[in-house]
Design a protein around this nucleic acid. Structure first.
Lengths: 241, 241
DNA sequence: AGGATTATACTTGTATACAAGTATTCATGT
DNA sequence: ACATGAATACTTGTATACAAGTATAATCCT
């Protein structure tokens, strides 16, 4: 790949195939509107651009189709991208998942889980202390993923896994943007995660719902403008740590 | 493809590529345990068996991996298959989806939806009257899909779409099995669908929940033994209308 | 005989070649 | 000038070829 890469390398385990890298790179380019909506991509064109053959490109496009980011027609892949409605809907699903999960966690106590969550939260604090926004984003997702994995529900996990990559991009971009505009937001995000741990530890279901709900509000509402304002999105794209 | 095909042709629109056909065929073979769990499939082996090249096979396996039916390792694809826990979990998700959807339907009245549901229900009755179990199954799924699609929630639809093919197989197999063992089950399934329509039309949320819940119970519990008993599964596989 | 090492037959990932179909363009006929 | 049709340059879907890696089997050495 020749051009500047938007997706951070460290999130790609070195064993990943070219196809998987392509997916990550194309995904964030589409979501950040570096590849504009309704543009048409062809396998050959992308293959040429990234100096690879059609095989991994084809693979990548299939994945992006399943994530709803492109529509594969007979004549090229049409870029759908992400709308504000999509983002709302994604958080609908996330709320569904997390409500389901915490519902099950109320009846099973699990100290190991709480410990791991505290560990990740500490890491989030460190990350933000040193201005490592990408790492912060990654750990944020990991925090929630740990909770979801804790109930051992394969199908819920699959739904999460389908959503995860897109959400990762959304969070990554919004956090990068914040880091230049609303740095104090991070404190509130951290507080929210404390609240989640608190709710899980006391098994207070109302507190739990409140914590998740306000977490979504925090993560999402504050940067609504990001998704419609091209200038702001450019800032988020051009972030380089 | 040379051997007997388990997946009914008519559900494959003729425009489908070889890869998509392969997916459907492999999926039902895995779920019906015609391909046993923990067996190892290689791209070359399947390609040879179905007289196609590796390209469509590779594509098919990737899809099956996303559905959790196989695990793609460095050395062949290991068949995971479906466990009873998986089935329970799938119906967890389905309940989540349908509860979410009907929650939204309570505030928006939609006569066109009800009409379409009645139409499909009539078709289900005809199908079963003439002993067309596959068509009955297909219409059953369509019934629920229509409801889900009615709220115009892209992400919910994507979750449904991810689940749909596997569920289609589960329903297809269980219905085939019923048709030889518990034919009267179909009447109760029809009644349940009447109940759903009734609940939707009166906007009775309790009735709605009850209808969906008992529908799941009906669809699922009665044939639990199917998924553990190889003989029964063979019957369901060998169904030929 | 038994353990290490080379050979071999597999596996996937990627590149390339070919076939079939579609949109565009350009020429041609009136 | 304009509609019609043939040529061309694209597109995807599939098949095949090659490279790199891995497990199994055979061989060799002690």
């Amino acid at each position: 790949m020749s051009m500047k890469r938007l997706y951070p390398d460290r999130l790609l385990s070195s064993t990943n195939s070219m196809g998987e890298r392509l997916v990550s790179e194309l995904r964030i380019r589409i979501i950040s509107q570096d590849i504009p909506k309704e543009s048409v991509l062809s396998e050959n064109q992308i293959a040429k651009e990234y100096q690879v053959s059609r095989s991994p490109v084809r693979e990548a496009l299939k994945v992006l189709e399943r994530e709803g980011l492109v529509r594969l027609g007979r004549m090229g892949a049409i870029v759908i991208g992400i709308s504000e409605k999509d983002i709302e809907e994604i958080y609908d699903i996330r709320l569904l998942i997390e409500t389901f999960v915490t519902g099950r966690l109320l009846v099973s106590h699990n100290d190991a889980l709480l410990n791991e969550l505290r560990k990740v939260l500490e890491m989030m604090k460190i990350a933000i202390k040193y201005g490592d926004v990408d790492e912060f984003s990654f750990k944020d997702i990991e925090f929630h993923e740990i909770i979801i994995k804790s109930i051992n529900h394969q199908q819920i996990l699959m739904v999460w896994n389908q959503l995860r990559p897109v959400m990762e991009c959304l969070i990554l971009l919004s956090m990068r943007y914040r880091s230049k505009v609303n740095y104090e937001d991070f404190d509130r995000i951290l507080e929210n995660h404390e609240l989640i741990i608190e709710a899980l530890s006391t098994k207070d279901s109302k507190l739990m719902d409140k914590a998740f709900y306000s977490n979504f509000g925090d993560v999402q509402n504050r940067v609504e403008e990001l998704w419609t304002n091209a200038e702001m999105m450019k800032k988020a794209r051009d972030y380089d740590g």
